[in-house]
Simulated scan of single mutants.
Amino acid sequence: MKLMRTALMVILAFFVATTGIHAQTSPKKESKPKTEKAPESTKDSSVKIPNSVLDIAKENTYPNSTQDQPYLQPSEWSQELIETSNVRIENPNLIRILNESTVNKAPTIGLRATIYLGEWPLNYASTETSPNWEYQKVNTNYFDNRGGKSNYQIHYLQEAQKVVKGGLTAKVPHADDVEKMMLIKAMDKSKLPLAFQTIVGAGTKKDQVYNISPKRLGYLYAYAPAINEKGKVTYGEVYLVMKGTKRSIVVKNVTSQGVGAWIPVQDHVHFGFMASESPR
């Protein structure tokens, strides 16, 4: 797939550069109605973090790299093309190919050409963004205070490094592109630091204290939380159509399919404390 996209990018750049089409000399097309646009709520949908979930970014002994939203800003020429499409285009990799194409300033009259750019996942519409604060258990701290005469205080100490991975819940075509679009939407909706992989380093600790009463055993469980993202991805065959000084994108054979993913919350841990009279 990567080789095919690289070849398409080179062919597109060469062809557009030699056709003499200039973005600024082309008349602007009237806006076309876009299909496959799922209405999304404009209300605040950010996820509320409970008190049992703590940020460990400063204490984490493994420095996770900050995951920025992988959104690529279209160039002026790319934006003009995207606006002509009959289907909404949000795929960062497709936008990158359009951005890296070159354009000659001199217009060419009488040109007629259609270039097939391949089948792409074009956009992702989110229908549900919900948290699971106990997505994966990463640590257990334990102390037996059955022989004690006063409260014993324990706190969180990560005993071993844990790698927490997310991913799509089912196989879909062009999974990498779909993951990027889902990550963008989930981060925007939840307002949480998300990544498909996060690591909790050994020796990470928090000073928050949990009391174990006498005659009891105490268990402090630590969980990595994650977002369950669900929605619909739209696919289509993309064509670059050029007629004289005009150019546009036409999408054919449009299909949609449901998709879901688990996306871990980076550098956050959910704590659950339990005290009991007998071992668990």
Rank of each mutant, 00 (worst) to 15 (best):
I49G: 10
E229G: 10
E59I: 01
D176K: 14
H174C: 15
V138N: 13
T127E: 01
Q158V: 02
K165I: 10
A275F: 00
R5T: 01
A23P: 08
T255D: 08
S41M: 11
I11W: 09
S85A: 12
K2M: 06
G147D: 11
A57G: 04
G148Y: 01
T198G: 07
N99W: 00
E179H: 03
T245I: 15
L183S: 10
L12Y: 14
G260S: 05
Q136E: 12
F14G: 04
V10D: 00
N51F: 07
K215H: 05
N123H: 07
L54K: 03
I21E: 05
L98T: 02
E36F: 08
P225W: 00
L168I: 15
S31E: 06
E128L: 07
S45W: 09
E36V: 04
E134L: 09
E40K: 03
K215F: 03
V241F: 14
G236I: 07
N51H: 10
L217R: 10
N60V: 06
A23I: 12
S276G: 06
K34Y: 04
Q73K: 07
Q136D: 13
P27N: 11
K189Y: 02
D176W: 15
I89M: 12
K191H: 12
L220R: 03
G20N: 08
T245P: 07
A275T: 05
S78G: 05
P279G: 14
L122G: 11
S26C: 15
P92W: 03
S190C: 13
W120D: 13
V254G: 11
V47L: 09
I95C: 06
A186R: 02
K162E: 03
D207R: 14
Q67D: 04
K189G: 03
I49M: 10
P193C: 12
F15L: 03
S45R: 11
